[in-house]
């Protein structure tokens, strides 16, 4: 075997190894969801067992999965749409009409992500209480939009920067206004980037647990609250919890699997520049 082949083989093995390590907890969770509570905590753990739907049965009987799932879908997609509507003009102005403070503004926006959310829980809670937004889909949508906005602006900014200014200028020569320029030139050219930004924002919103647990009770509670209701400091609950988690990640896992091409492309876009 020549050295390049060996290298290729080793790299493939390494990639498979890493993929297996990353996927193993998810695989184990899916497996545990089909065990009985006793088997779920058995030592040594069993790989082969008689699968049961008892965990799923209990989970479905104790909570209304569809209601939680619907909330998750509305909130994560709604917040992403809202974030894109705000972020596209922002990223446009930063990419094509930069001032000397643009870089600083970008960094400052990102710095808000470094604030621990619990630090602003009380003020946000009070605001939401007074505006009647506690336990509402709208309230959580707004919070998620704000939460993801810095990342969305940053990603769009890097994608927009890659578009040569000359193309937009050519459009302007042909009489396009700013709106037409964005709608007919910029957006079609950066669509893969926008799609992957949106996907990332959906996934981040879907998985967010702190705000969803604290700002909802029952009406607007998404799937993270659904999972949280099956964890317990007492008694045996691993099989039920695994079943609930599998149900909660299933939609986003399928969605992510279908769109992985765009995801990978978007996430590695900046890296190969």
């Amino acid at each position: 075997m020549n050295p390049t082949m060996t290298k290729k083989l080793l790299l493939t093995l390494l990639a498979w190894g890493i993929a297996l390590i990353v996927f193993f907890p998810i695989f184990w969770m899916i497996l545990t969801g089909f065990k009985t509570e006793g088997e779920a905590v058995a030592t040594p753990p069993s790989l082969f067992f008689e699968p049961t739907l008892a965990g799923y049965h209990t989970v479905m009987a104790r909570a209304d999965y569809l209601k939680f799932a619907l909330n998750s879908i509305v909130i994560s997609f709604g917040s992403t749409l809202l974030a894109l509507i705000v972020a596209i003009p922002a990223a446009y102005s930063m990419a094509f009409l930069p001032t000397k403070r643009t870089q600083g503004t970008l960094l400052w926006m990102l710095s808000t992500k470094m604030l621990p959310p619990v630090g602003v829980l009380m003020p946000v809670y009070l605001l939401f209480r007074d505006m009647g937004l506690l336990d509402s889909q709208l309230g959580l949508t707004i919070v998620y939009m704000l939460m993801n906005l810095p990342i969305v602006v940053w990603m769009l900014y890097t994608f927009f920067k890659d578009i040569p200014k000359d193309i937009l200028e050519a459009g302007r020569m042909d009489g396009a206004g700013t709106v037409q320029e964005v709608l007919y030139l910029l957006l079609p050219l950066t669509l893969p980037g926008i799609a992957s930004t949106g996907l990332l924002s959906v996934i981040l919103s879907w998985n967010e647990a702190f705000w969803s647990l604290n700002l909802t009770t029952s009406d607007a509670a998404p799937l993270t609250a659904f999972i949280a209701s099956f964890s317990s400091p007492e008694g045996l609950f691993w099989a039920k919890l695994s079943a609930a988690s599998t149900l909660a990640i299933a939609p986003i896992l399928i969605f992510g699997w279908m769109t992985q091409k765009q995801m990978v492309r978007g996430l590695t876009f900046g890296a190969v520049k």
Binding site: L213, S218, A228, S229, S232
Partner: peptide, 19 residues
Amino acid sequence: WVVLEENVLRQRLTTDIAT
């Protein structure tokens, strides 16, 4: 019903009752 794990519940309730 809102069912939560003990520590999460404690924090959630404290936030709500204090505000």
